[in-house]
Design a protein around this nucleic acid. Sequence first.
RNA 1: GGCGACGUGGCCAAGUGGUUAAGGCGGGGGUCUGCAAAACCCCUAUCGUCGGUUCGAUUCCGACCGUCGCCUCCA
Length: 452
Amino acid sequence: MRITDTLSQRKEALTPMGDEVLIYVCGVTPYAEGHIGHAMSYIVFDVLRRFLEFQGFKVRHVQNFTDIDDRLIDRAAQRGTTVTELAGRYIDDYFRDMDDLNVMRATIYPRATEEVPQIIEIVQGLIDKGYAYQSGSDVFYRVRMKENYGALKHQSLDELIAGARVEVDELKEFPGDFALWKGAKPGEPAWESPWGAGRPGWHIECSAMSLRYLGPQIDIHGGGEDLIFPHHTNEIAQTEAYTGKQPFVRIWMHNAHLRLAGAKMSKSLGNILSIRDALERWGADGLRLFVLGSHYRSPLTASDEALDAAKRGAERLKAAARIPGAGSGREVETTVCRARFVEALEDDLNTPQALAALFDLAKEINRGRDDGATIERAQSTLLEMAEILGLRLEESSTAGIAAEPFVELLVEIRRGLRSAKQFQLADRVREGLAALGITLEDAPNGTTWKRG
RNA sequence: GGCGACGUGGCCAAGUGGUUAAGGCGGGGGUCUGCAAAACCCCUAUCGUCGGUUCGAUUCCGACCGUCGCCUCCA
């Protein structure tokens, strides 16, 4: 398949170096509940993973938790708890959200706090090579030492620091230098190091983890586009300086951001849409369909209307895949749709095109069901394709609803009313149940019902 | 200020230098149904504006208008 590489700004053919495709995806800093922007990012890389495995690749997928950083320290202090406890709680939340979203688990989820010895080793190595320097109890990376610094962002060092927000720090030799190691302030979590008690800087943990679990050079490194600078830019600088091997990453893959209608999601504005709330309202398939309905490199704006539409689309696919047919005629043809689906994903993970093929297959199945064709094989194909997109298309479960026997009873009574041509009463039953959130559908071979 | 992205039907969103510009949602008309629902059939766009290149541009180039992102908190 071909993937757009942020560094070359072109679609590059994915040709893994070894038996496995080595993928590193930047994970979360677990200091707050996950929002649908995170969902978008991890859904995209989940589809990449699923598609690669479908294509027969073995994938080694590493995704980190940055479980030590300023925000965690601040928030833990606010709440009178520990960083460990806080991070642990949000990591649990993260897994729960991802499981519900049907995001496959990565091969390994290393945590920054468990990689400190490796981090110290790399920082020391960078000091030894002259790429880093100790200043006070901090260690900084000498950005000016690294040639092509800023290439990923397609800006020169001068352009990058022309922005006004460079942190003024007396300890730095140069304003653009960034911290590899931060000396601990009183009361902060800290590890012993050659430079005194402290903790890792923001970017170094990803270098350490990808190095340890994937090696000095990897096939794909992914994340949100906000990470291009400084995070990924600094990762390249550190890792290549430390290993002496280039390129650190063969394909940089970045997803555009998701916004809420109106404004960017911002904690200060309070307009966060959590994964939890979104799941409740639109379901995993609805959310996935919404995200995958636009290309991962295009910014996407979430709105109630767009999410509602996606949810209805998911229901359409589900019905096509699950409603049985009674026909025994010709087989519904699937090869064209299937080929279109695979070709779309091979071309830079074009999920909107892949979905179009999926919906066309759904139409073929529905048409076949109406025409008395054999649809079972086509339905299996639809489910198989849907699974590559992580769509479950599960039948709406009527089990577990406390009122189930009562609904069944009403449906049965209504059946009698209809055969006795008591349509006004039958309609009252249907309308009454509708008002309670139960939808009845009369088909030639009986009545089915579902929630919603 | 610097860098970058985008502007396609009512909404969301693919795509292509030239046959009919995907798909979803919505809307209109039909078929089926006791009526609905679901499903199926039909209809619902000349691609921001102005120039240029070209035999031919929505697709390439330039300008302009508009929207947005990043510039060390950020998936």
